[in-house]
Design a protein around this nucleic acid. Sequence first.
DNA 1: GGCTTATATTGTAATATTACGATTATTGAA
DNA 2: TTCAATAATCGTAATATTACAATATAAGCC
Lengths: 110, 110
Amino acid sequence: MGATKSEIFTPAQNHMARMTKALAHPARIAIIQYLFARRSCVCGDIVDVVGLAQPTISQHLKELKSAGLIKGSVEGTSVCYCIDQKNWSVMKDLLSPFLNLDAAILNDCC
Amino acid sequence: MGATKSEIFTPAQNHMARMTKALAHPARIAIIQYLFARRSCVCGDIVDVVGLAQPTISQHLKELKSAGLIKGSVEGTSVCYCIDQKNWSVMKDLLSPFLNLDAAILNDCC
DNA sequence: GGCTTATATTGTAATATTACGATTATTGAA
DNA sequence: TTCAATAATCGTAATATTACAATATAAGCC
């Protein structure tokens, strides 16, 4: 036990959970917001702004990257991280219809 | 170590992370989808449909409830769970602007 | 080559999550 | 009040996450 039973869910459900999981930490929310704000894409700047230790940020960046939400490229001695526009869009198209499910039409039985 | 450092993030960032975390498991996605589909709101039916053991589903329901996304009421010997319309709406208003951040206007430096 | 800067990786401790068997309420019915 | 049905809680094992110090790697510069 202890590991998620992915086999019993649909690919879409697993994909959605994978995306929400990537966003399920305030540091990763902060990183994404910073990248959208476009002040900088440099890894070191992210470390300074977010306020966690460098290895911790590196770990969070790795998770965002493996989820496909960001991509990185080496720029001299530093590394530049950017939103992966295509995958971000895919995620949006997956999550938006879910969030927009209209709860108002439900006959509230609770 | 090991625990998230919530203190260093904004309330909005923590709130967003809390919501995405509640959705960060395929079983919880499946439960929400089932409740929106309105075939039933009965806990036992959820257990049958999702395909995890009853205590596991009960645990997931508890997490969704503590995140405020669902609410439950006792109906005889069973328990009825429903989407919490108000909080679902709050979450949507919090997450949608984030998801809709336009990546297309970014000058992609990676 | 050596030196500096920037980031990734390793190792590890603390904590959290996932899953389920066994058990315990709780409710309604006999 | 005893019984059956339903869901919650307890206990626990397996696994995953979070965080960081220490170290390693890589890229540019002298």
